[in-house]
Every structure is written in structure tokens, then in C-alpha cells.
Nucleic acid binder design. Structure first.
Length: 351
DNA sequence: CTCATTTGACCATT
DNA sequence: AATGGTCAAATGAG
């Protein structure tokens, strides 16, 4: 169900703004911590939070991009799973799955397929004691676990905690990597329509429990240890890249992106990356006055470019599930969209 | 008590 | 029929 996006800011836009603003603030804090007296831990913590913020922002953006798309664009992508106009459907999402009605059931399944999907690869770092929210900052409720064929570890299924209360249908699957047990593949499906403020505490609990239940395969779970050391989930940059590539399939060529102000959007990112004077922009970010949302044909969103630049360090880990369906076409599409003006190639993006 | 997780059963899709 | 995804009753935690 699409919540009123007609006027003003949507929930996700607000969340996006919040994340970016927060990221900026954190970056400023980090800058303040660059003096030698500051501890590495605090820097790492800030860094982690910044990454988390942008991670979230990216996820939201991907969604928005696909949502703003006219359906016509979707088929071109060749990525059935993520090429979506989730909001394009006139049907409502209100259907409760509990209803076994056939019609609803089929509708739901259709919707399922249309749900945007992307995968993150998250690595657990035991090294630094970073208390941090789970990478996505949302609170999830586990609703299932399955042994997956050929997979060493079971897959866990989560849905948004506020599914019932706020009609939020976002879900995610967590699958521990076969070869690198410190890596978790997290596949997200659907967007969050809830307005949860990310609190750390419940999340950590959840993660702990999640880590505990892998016992069906009796292995000395290092994950317990790792999680107990404070879950520090680091999104590796390469994975981010992959994710971005995948997401690009979602809104190819001229994806129209719904945003309140194109300038701001660019300012936000470029300034954050290039400038060290970040603060000044944040007020302009919030312009709720514009009740009418404008559609900007966003050529390549700046983030995409950035990611693209990172990318020539070929992708190692690509999500098997989602990107299996990906075709090289997407990459072509992608590079075509490359913005030559794109200023920052610095690999030390977050340094 | 409420709320989250566990876990086998059930369902849909292939 | 096999597999992956979800439901929901039982169980556990607070």
C-alpha cells in the first residue's frame, strides 16, 4: 500500500534526510576526532555510524528510485526481481497474509515478486568493540529459519517488527556465508514504511538471539563470540559496490527520482565527500515547505557514479540470489550513465 | 502478563 | 517431489 506520497515528504524521504543529516553530523564529529589524542575506538565508532547512515540512505534511495519509475522502464532492466514499481500497483498492500483467500493470495505472491530485493554483505568485526546498531538500524522480528540446500548455515527470516502496527512489509533474510563465517549475506525485500527510530538495544538483543539459534548445525559458533563482542557489522565497500550495481538495474537510463530538490540532493553528497565544511548544508536539506514534490530525472545518481568508480576493483562477492539474474546489460547501462563530471574518485571515501 | 523466538507444519513455486 | 518461504503453536524471556 502506498502511503500518501502525493504531497510533502514521504516517510522514506524523511528518513533519508535524517540519515544523511546524521551522517554529516557524524562526519563532523569524526573530523573533530582526527586529532591524535582521540582514541581509535571512537573514530571507528563514528566511522561505523557514518557508514551505517549512508548505507541506510542508499537503501532508501534505491527504493525511491524504483518507486518513482514509470512501469514502462522496468522491463528493460532484465532484473525481474528488483525492477519494480512497487508503488505502481493500484492494489493495496493491506492484505493480511493470514487470509487464505485465493485472490488475495495470488495478489500477494505477485507483489512478492515485484518487491525490490537487494543483498548486502556484512562482515562481523570482532576487533573493535563498536556498539552499533545493526547495519540497517531497523528492528526486525524473526519469523522463520530454514536449512538451505547446499548451504552450510541455516537462513533466517525476519520481518519488520512493526508489520502489524504500522503495516510495514519490509523483510530480510540473513544467510551466513559458507566460506567466510564472518560474512553475512543480508537480503532485503521491500521497503520500510514504518517510522521506527533506530534504537540500538533491541537490535542487539535480536542479533544475539539470532546468533544463538544456529545450533542445529552443531558448530562451535564463533558467531556468539563475535556478537557478544558487540556486533560490529561492517559493510564492505566492494559489496556496497555490487549492491549499487544491482540497484542500477532498477532505474536505468532516465529513472525519475522523486525528490524535493535536486540541488540539495547533489549538494548533500558531494559536499560531504569533497568538502570538509559540511555543516552549512544541512539546513537546506530540510525544506518541508515544498508541498509539491518535484520529479527530477536523475541521470545517474551521484552515488552511483561514486560507486562505479570504486568498482574497477572487480567484484568478488556478488550475491548469489539476487544478482544471479543480473545480466551484464546492467553494467553497460550503468557505464553509459556515467557522469564525467563526477569529481571524487578517491578510494578513501570515508577517511 | 506481554512480546519475541523457536520450530515443525504448511504452502507456493519450480 | 524438492525446495524455499511463511505460519502459528509452543516455548522462553523479561
Amino acid at each position: 500500500m502506498e502511503f500518501a506520497m502525493e504531497n510533502g515528504l514521504t516517510l522514506e524521504q524523511n528518513t533519508l534526510i535524517n540519515e544523511l543529516t546524521q551522517g554529516m553530523e557524524l562526519a563532523k564529529q569524526l573530523r573533530a576526532h582526527l586529532n591524535p589524542t582521540s582514541s581509535n575506538e571512537s573514530r571507528e565508532l563514528l566511522l561505523q555510524k557514518i557508514l551505517s547512515s549512508y548505507e541506510k540512505a542508499l537503501l532508501i534511495l534505491k527504493w525511491s528510485g524504483s518507486v518513482g519509475n514509470p512501469q514502462s522502464v522496468a522491463p528493460v532492466t532484465g532484473l525481474p526481481e528488483s525492477s519494480v514499481s512497487g508503488d505502481g500497483s493500484p492494489q493495496s498492500d493491506d492484505f493480511d497474509r493470514g487470509f487464505k483467500d485465493h485472490l488475495e493470495q495470488s495478489d500477494v505472491s505477485k507483489k512478492r515478486k515485484l518487491m525490490p530485493t537487494w543483498t548486502d554483505h556484512v562482515r562481523v568485526c570482532s576487533e573493535n568493540g563498536l556498539e552499533g546498531p545493526m547495519e540497517d538500524g531497523y528492528s526486525w522480528r524473526k519469523y522463520g529459519q530454514k536449512d538451505i540446500l547446499g548451504a552450510k548455515y541455516p537462513r533466517s527470516y525476519y520481518r519488520c517488527t512493526y508489520r502489524s502496527t504500522q503495516n510495514c512489509w519490509a523483510t530480510k533474510q540473513v544467510q551466513r556465508s559458507d566460506d567466510d563465517p564472518t560474512v553475512f549475506e543480508i537480503t532485503y525485500k521491500g521497503k520500510h514504511t514504518c517510522s521506527q527510530n533506530h534504537h540500538t538495544s533491541p537490535l542487539e538483543k535480536q542479533q544475539l538471539k539470532q546468533s544463538n539459534n544456529g545450533n542445529s548445525h552443531q558448530q562451535p559458533p564463533p558467531e556468539n563470540l563475535l556478537f557478544n563482542l558487540r556486533t560490529n557489522l561492517r559493510v564492505s565497500t566492494e559489496d556496497l559496490n555490487n549492491k549499487e550495481v544491482a540497484s542500477n538495474f532498477t532505474f536505468p537510463h532516465s529513472a525519475s527520482f522523486k525528490w524535493m530538490n535536486g540541488e540539495n540532493q547533489n549538494l548533500g553528497f558531494s559536499s560531504l565527500v569533497n568538502d570538509h565544511t559540511l555543516g552549512s548544508y544541512s539546513p537546506s536539506f530540510i525544506s518541508p515547505a515544498t508541498s509539491e514534490t518535484n520529479y527530477y530525472s536523475v541521470p545517474p545518481f551521484r552515488m552511483n557514479n561514486m560507486v562505479h568508480n570504486f568498482q574497477h576493483s572487480e567484484s568478488e562477492i556478488i550475491s548469489a540470489t539476487t544478482s544471479a539474474t543480473n545480466s551484464p546489460i546492467g553494467e553497460l547501462d550503468f557505464s553509459i550513465d556515467l557522469d564525467p563530471n563526477f569529481p571524487f574518485n578517491s578510494p578513501g571515501f570515508f577517511n
